[in-house]
Amino acid sequence: MAAFASVISPVCALVLGPLLLALINRTKAFVAGRRGPPLLQPYFDIAKYLRRGAVYGDATSWVFRLGPVVNLTVLFAALLIVPWGAIRSPLSFSGDLIVVAGLLAVGRFAIVLAALDTGSSFEGMGASREVHFAALAEPALLLALAVLARVTGALSLTPIYQGITASAWVAALPTLALAAMTLLVLALVENSRIPVDDPTTHLELTMIHEVMVLDHSGPDLGYIHYAAALKLWILGGLLVGLVMPLRSGALWLDGSAMLLGMAILAVVIGMIESAMARYRLVHVPQFIVGAATLSVVGFILILV
């Protein structure tokens, strides 16, 4: 039973990850008065890319081909460590949150180098923005996790998330709320959502993530799309696990609550995307640093 329980979280992520993207798109379509693409569209897209051949830029080397592979596998590895709310991860050890941050950094580094490998100024531009925002988002993520570690007195993600119960919320309400704000902003930043980046924009000059992957095609692009879904699932799971403090111990109850929470998160992101315009690029750093500051305030609040 324990072995079964521990594979639930990665299996759910692998199977349901792309569904989150579909839900966001459906929400946006609903708000705009359209019907929107079918819920399985992201799966169709990934399958389509995997069936295609590929075209490579003249300047590219093996770094370009390796980028999407590394970017996808680090997320697989992270799924071994990251719990899904009350549902534990397959592996849990002191300091595993540092390893997760490290793995995310590897994936980002691989995609940035792949973008630079094309020699295209558009992709260089995207890479430049990506490293800029990531340099601010990385300390923000560690900061939010440090706040959760302080609240729960644990150094590993699974015990931390086991410790975020309703009574923990009662005891440290402002702090946990502020940390949740930070995690929400990070989920938007790291997954290139509005108001930071617009995944559906049509102008290369204003993109961040999409412009870095302009020249990937075929299976490489399929890997990138799947990785984007998994990353949204992982960061969204960290947020939902925090704001949804149901720790009943019953697997089906906790699991359904998390599923519901993830669906609500997708709707919330869809609403944010419908209601907000994208920030100007120069304001994005302020957005990230502001979100990190919330966690610092939360940390100070529980010290005194």
Binding site: G53, V55, D58, S120, F122, E123
Partner: peptide
Amino acid sequence: RAHLLWARRIGSGPVWG
């Protein structure tokens, strides 16, 4: 990935400008 690309058409060309 290598398996998927096996025997498929692999092109090369200028990047999107």
